[in-house]
C-alpha cells in the first residue's frame, strides 16, 4: 500500500467534471484507489463517493493505492490532482 497527501488546487474543487476525470483515470488501474478526507474514505472509482466529499479548493486529502499497479496508480492520480484537472487554478 502506498499513500500521499495532496492539496486540491483547482478553483471549483472536486465538482462533477474533476470527479468524472478521477473515476475515469482510476478505472484504468486494477489497484484499489481511495481518497481520504478527514474521517471519510471513499473509492476513487465511485463518482458519488467523490462528490460526497464536497472537497473545495485548498482542501488537503490523502490518496491511497493498494494492488499490483499501486505505484503507477498513485503517480498518475497525483499528476491529475496537481495540475488541477486541467481546470482554472
Amino acid at each position: 500500500m502506498r499513500e500521499k497527501n495532496v492539496k486540491i488546487v483547482n478553483k471549483l474543487g472536486l465538482h462533477a467534471r474533476p470527479a468524472s476525470l478521477i473515476v475515469q483515470t482510476a478505472m484504468a488501474f486494477s489497484s484499489n484507489i481511495y481518497i481520504i478526507k478527514d474521517e471519510a474514505k471513499v473509492d476513487a472509482k465511485s463518482i458519488m463517493g467523490i462528490l460526497m466529499l464536497a472537497a473545495a479548493c485548498g482542501t488537503e486529502i490523502k490518496l491511497q493505492t493498494e494492488g499490483p499497479d499501486e505505484e503507477q496508480a498513485l503517480e498518475k492520480m497525483l499528476e491529475i490532482f496537481n495540475n488541477g484537472f486541467g481546470e482554472e487554478i
Partner: peptide, 11 residues
Amino acid sequence: AHLLILNDPMI
C-alpha cells in the same frame, strides 16, 4: 457523469 453514476461501484 450520468454514465459514471450508473456504473458507480459503491452504489
